[in-house]
Amino acid sequence: MNYTNTTTDLSDNPIDTAIISVGATEQFGPFLPMHLDTLIAEQYAEAYGKVLNAICVTYISF
Rank of each mutant, 00 (worst) to 15 (best):
Thr6His: 03
Glu26Pro: 02
Ile15Lys: 08
Ile40Gln: 03
Thr17Ala: 11
Thr38Trp: 10
Ala18Ser: 10
Thr25Pro: 03
Asp16Trp: 05
Val22Asn: 02
Thr17Leu: 09
Asp16Ile: 15
Ala24Pro: 01
Gly29Ile: 01
Thr25Gln: 08
Thr8Met: 13
Ala24Arg: 03
Thr4Phe: 10
Ile55Ala: 13
Met1Trp: 03
Glu42Met: 09
Tyr44Glu: 03
Glu46Pro: 06
Leu52Glu: 11
Ala18Cys: 14
Ile19Ser: 05
Leu39Val: 10
Tyr59Leu: 14
Lys50Val: 08
Leu10Gln: 05
Asn13Pro: 04
Ala41Gln: 05
Asp12Lys: 12
Thr58Asn: 09
Gln43Trp: 03
Leu36Trp: 00
Phe31Ala: 14
Asp37Arg: 04
Tyr59Pro: 06
Asn13Met: 01
Ile19Ala: 04
Pro33Gln: 07
Leu10Arg: 13
Pro33Tyr: 09
Ile19Asn: 00
Gln43Glu: 02
Glu42Cys: 06
Val22Arg: 06
Leu36Pro: 00
Leu32Gly: 00
Ala54Asp: 01
Pro30Asp: 08
Ala41Met: 02
Thr8Glu: 14
Leu32Ile: 03
Val57Arg: 02
Thr38Gly: 08
Glu46Leu: 04
Ile40Pro: 05
Leu32Val: 11
Asp16Gln: 14
Tyr3Thr: 14
Leu32Phe: 13
Ile55Glu: 04
Ala54Gln: 01
Thr6Gly: 05
Asn13Gln: 10
Ile15Tyr: 11
Ala18Ile: 12
Glu26Trp: 08
Ser11Asp: 06
Asn5Trp: 11
Gln43Pro: 04
Ile60His: 08
Asp16Val: 14
Ala24Ile: 01
